[in-house]
Simulated scan of single mutants.
Amino acid sequence: MKFIKSLAMLSTLLSFAVAGTFVDDSEIGLRKISVKDENSVTLRDVNYSAQPAGLSTRFDRAFENAPPMIPHDLDGLLPITTELNMCTTCHLPEFANDVGSTPVPKSHLVDLRSGEDNEGVLDGSRYNCVQCHTPQAKVNIAIQNNFKPEFFYKDGNSSSNLMDILNEGVK
């Protein structure tokens, strides 16, 4: 059966080749260069927020429980390592209220694999903040989007309820 499926796929590919309908990899995506060519990639000039922490304006979340974007300048805060994470000096719950920052949500203080509460300690798998959270930037949008998020609870555009709904629908 696998052999027959493989023959069918090969036949389809050959028909595209004969018809001349292959699309060159430089014609796909937004870069318009070969996907194998990393030497011709030029980074766009991006205007990231230069506002210091506490003075910046936050963007709403893109969708419910989306990681919020970083509204402030990151100079002096990177790189983030397991030994040194400057984000935690303001965003752990015990510091956040004093400095007026957004505290990390409960989901960051729990081992989501075991469900074990880390009692206020950032979970080890969550140390690299910029893996999910990216700096806000003023950019020209390459492709317009008319997506409008719908938030199912009152503060969904600015806070997370992930721990409350994580197992919703799971039996």
Rank of each mutant, 00 (worst) to 15 (best):
S101H: 06
A17P: 04
G124F: 02
I4H: 05
G100I: 02
T21A: 14
D25T: 13
E119T: 13
V121F: 13
S15Q: 10
G169E: 04
S114C: 11
A142M: 04
N146D: 07
F22H: 14
D73F: 03
K32M: 09
D98L: 11
T81P: 03
S159K: 03
N39W: 07
M163V: 03
V35G: 12
A17D: 10
A137R: 11
F16M: 15
D164R: 00
A19I: 03
G124P: 03
K106H: 01
F147A: 11
C132H: 06
L92H: 08
Q144G: 14
S107M: 03
Y48Q: 06
G156L: 00
G120M: 07
H91R: 10
N97F: 10
E94L: 12
K171S: 14
E27V: 05
D155V: 01
N118Q: 12
S26T: 14
K138T: 11
L166N: 01
N128D: 13
F152S: 14
L92K: 15
L77D: 09
P93Y: 06
R31P: 02
E119F: 12
C132L: 08
D37M: 10
T42Q: 15
F16H: 15
E168P: 01
F16L: 15
F59V: 05
S40H: 12
Y153F: 15
A62K: 05
D111M: 04
K148W: 00
M69P: 01
V170A: 12
E116S: 04
D164Y: 00
S125A: 08
S26Y: 07
S125Q: 05
L7S: 12
E168M: 08
M9I: 14
K5L: 09
C129K: 11
S114H: 08
N118A: 04
L84N: 13
I141R: 15
E116L: 10
N85T: 09
C132F: 06
D155P: 07
R61H: 05
Q136L: 04
P149F: 00
N118E: 04
K148E: 09
D117I: 10
D123M: 03
P68M: 07
I70T: 11
L74S: 09
P135C: 05
A50N: 15
E116C: 01
F95S: 14
T21I: 12
T89M: 11
K36A: 13
Q131C: 07
D164K: 03
G124K: 08
L7A: 12
L7K: 08
E64V: 00
Q131W: 05
K154W: 06
E38I: 15
N128G: 06
H72N: 11
M86T: 13
D117K: 07
F151P: 12
V41R: 15
D37T: 10
S56D: 11
D37H: 09
N167E: 05
S114E: 09
L30S: 13
N128K: 10
L13W: 10
L74R: 13
G54P: 02
F3E: 13
P93G: 10
F3W: 05
A8L: 07
D45P: 15
Q136C: 00
D73Y: 08
G54S: 02
S49R: 07
I143A: 12
V170S: 13
T89R: 15
I4P: 01
A8W: 00
S101I: 03
G120N: 13
N47D: 15
H108Q: 06
A53P: 06
Y48T: 07
S40P: 08
L166M: 08
T81I: 02
D25M: 07
G20C: 12
D117F: 05
S114L: 06
G29D: 03
